[in-house]
Design a protein around this nucleic acid. Structure first.
Lengths: 189, 189, 189, 189
DNA sequence: GATGAATGAGTATTCATTCAT
DNA sequence: TATGAATGAATACTCATTCAT
């Protein structure tokens, strides 16, 4: 039922600019950035932000959901092309490397007071499902330990992201994440 | 060097109560809790909070530094009693299990806008040093991979804490953390 | 004198719908209702409201003037058919009973910040004149005290309306108004 | 249970100034006046207004309740000194003449969206009770019609106030109110 | 030293009005 | 003409910090 007549060109443009600005701002400075500030940086009035996102939570949610949806799409793409379970680790690495830039995800999750709407949770579920497929194949191929499930992997990825952020080692980006992800190798690995 | 005349007994008591209240509040509700609220819960006036901690950051820092100092003390204790490098993993686990209760550490660190003062960084360094000793012994004993240093381990611990928090599995507390910490095992482990 | 070319049919229709919606909304919810909300309920865009009524005050005024004009028409009708001064009280009662439904009049007047335009004041004058004729006849017939003029009667009517609204007694509608209007009876009445 | 330790002198002073400013502002300009504006005029910061009256409604209510309480006190005083039922009309007149200055009461009541708290309603009840005693005595003395009760009288007073305000006749203040109050005379009066 | 009242810059949100489509 | 997106000043309220008592 979402057809809603297509948005006017300028409206869509503004919406995009607000989202992009918010993404960047939340990533760099945390969720504390004020809507007025985001409006200013996006070059629109505060009322415009409010028209597109009636409350701050709606904007946060949208940034988050957009991110989750993009990750889900990537995961599904990986599922489609993976034949032998080898797509698992590369996918996790690309995920983390991307999230390093867009800091929003973990930030939002680590903030206790952000309630995830049903829509976001649904998107998160889809991501986990795609995740799960990659995981099962990798486990069948013997490249991932068998005592973890998709939810565990999600947690480990978040942990890897945290570790990577905590100790970035700029000359070897992704090193810390790689170390943590090693925990997913089979025991005799 | 200020003269630091010893604090009056009631002042010291107030300081302790404020710190304790803040620790609890930051842990449970995040850093967003207002100073007025902390003052109220501690049973003092907001002016008293300000006398002891001239700015909110100072209070946050103190909570954090106290925690780091306590961890450092534990680490040194472990160093003193460890003979064969076997103290490493138990120490990490106790660390994480304690942090799970006192949520402040990781929260504060994950919040971009908290700048760590020199004093805090010094305390963190001490912790890392004690950490390092445990680590080296464990590496010499062959129970920890040799391509990580103390800073790496700190990052991994934070990652493990994050993962644990993300996917708590209440019937098996610490399971997620344990999974992540497996990444520190030697390759042929 | 603008040329006032007759409005296009759809424009006139929109204007009517907006007025009707505004009347209802102002009556039910007070003058605080937003123009956007009125536009939405009328099924037009906010721009359309603005085209017909360049400012909110203009819309309020129009609602008010329309009402006054309708009352004036009723008063003139009463004047035309009244032969013996007996039309006075029934007219006042019908006025009040109608106003009870359309709450706008007194509301708008009781709100200090609404300035009445010349046009509205002119309409109010017309009403008072028609009023006056009824009044004089009634006074000549000895059914109304002689120390009040048309303006006084208008004030008393507003007072009666206020009293009626303040203490509605649903099982005997108009009772409070009737009590207040008794003050217009001749002293020996 | 209201002992609460006496308020500090400066706090009480500020509270009084805010109340006085609000009374004046609400009376002159209606309830739409902003809290910031009231703060400015009272010479305090907006935060101070908020400390004393946590929400705008609380301030409105306090102004209103104060007024009702003062009226109640006057009514009780009249009850104490009235021996023959002759205090009734003078009291109503003094009430109206006072209310003409402090416009708040009727304004607030005519604004649909103000919900009266229990405390205010209780004060209004007390007023009505004192009112009622004066009324009964006057009715027994034969100076007031017997088909009205205290609630009716309250409504009539509000109506008289409205009429007076609508048609002030500055050279004969109170004339309009007097006209309306005549409706309370006994029929053969 | 402790108290808690005062400050005032800052936040999210609303809405009359303007203007591009 | 109609639409509805954009504007931006304004509003109620919050809270770290200051300061009189």
């Amino acid at each position: 039922m979402e057809s809603q007549r297509p948005m006017r060109a300028d409206a869509r443009r503004n919406r995009e600019r607000i989202l992009q600005t918010a993404r960047q701002a939340f990533a760099t400075e945390g969720l504390g950035v004020s809507l007025d500030e985001i409006a200013r940086r996006a070059g629109v009035g505060p009322g415009t932000v409010h028209r597109h996102f009636p409350a701050k939570e709606a904007l946060i949610e949208e940034v988050l959901t957009e991110h989750l949806a993009s990750l889900t799409e990537q995961a599904r793409q990986a599922v489609r092309t993976d034949r032998d379970g080898s797509a698992f680790f590369p996918f996790l690495h690309s995920l983390i490397s991307e999230a390093r830039a867009k800091q929003d995800l973990a930030d939002a999750l680590s903030q206790a007071d952000v309630k995830l709407s049903e829509r976001t949770q649904e998107t998160a579920l889809h991501l986990r499902q795609a995740f799960g497929e990659l995981l099962v194949r990798a486990q069948e191929a013997g490249t991932v330990r068998t005592d973890v499930d998709a939810e565990d992997v999600q947690a480990v990825v978040l942990g890897a992201l945290t570790a990577e952020r905590q100790n970035p080692t700029p000359d070897r980006p992704g090193r810390m994440a790689a170390v943590v992800l090693d925990c997913l190798l089979p025991e005799g690995g």
